[in-house]
């Protein structure tokens, strides 16, 4: 299976429909920080440039605002393609080009495994600790705390249902991967 087919399988998108009008790049709020702009990323996928795509900062900087998807005249969903590329990069063990983002997503899901829901202050605190931003954010954390907007962390007892979904979903995907 080519790289393009892998992305298309995961995202449910046909990248060959893209005719490079670049409305996605023009509207993307994160484009100025991306190495590959969304339209370039779409084209790179069609050219099977796996390393270039999976090592790009673009796939990690996408915030999923859906402006690209909303404006695409061909009804392709670049945001879904970006998400698929992140999953593929992780599966293939590619070092994330913007590591803070992957630390956040991983930490978020790990927090869900404790309680099913996340405890937002923990996710924020852990992310900021691991990315060296905790000290800058402490004054704000205090302001939120005195306004009653930081609740105490719950005991990690409620994640049973989510843990079941997590194990089962990942097992199905792994099984399918191995059979391939």
């Amino acid at each position: 299976m080519t790289f393009r087919q892998q992305i298309e399988g995961l995202s449910g998108q046909n990248t060959n429909l893209c005719y490079q009008c670049s409305k996605c790049s023009a509207g993307c709020p994160m484009a100025e920080w991306m190495d590959l702009k969304p339209a370039q990323l779409m084209h790179s996928i069609r050219l099977d440039l796996e390393d270039r795509v999976l090592n790009s900062t673009a796939i990690w900087l996408c915030v999923d605002c859906e402006t690209c998807t909303s404006r695409c005249p061909q009804k392709v969903e670049p945001a879904a393609v970006m998400t698929a590329a992140r999953v593929l990069a992780t599966q293939k063990g590619v070092t994330p080009s913007v590591k803070e983002v992957s630390i956040y997503y991983r930490g978020f899901v790990d927090n869900m495994r404790l309680n099913g829901k996340i405890h937002d202050a923990s996710v924020a605190g852990i992310t900021q600790l691991l990315t060296g931003q905790l000290r800058d954010n402490l004054p704000l954390a205090w302001k939120l705390f005195i306004r009653g907007r930081v609740k105490p962390p719950p005991l990690p007892l409620g994640g049973g249902e989510f843990r079941r979904l997590y194990n089962s979903a990942l097992a199905i995907e792994k099984d399918r991967e191995e059979r391939r």
Binding site: T83, V87, Y105, Y166, L170, E173
Partner: peptide, 19 residues
Amino acid sequence: PDWICCGTLAAPSISRLLG
């Protein structure tokens, strides 16, 4: 009753099916 987090962009960034 006993709702869980929607997973936002984090769950689909780990696994398609989980998302």
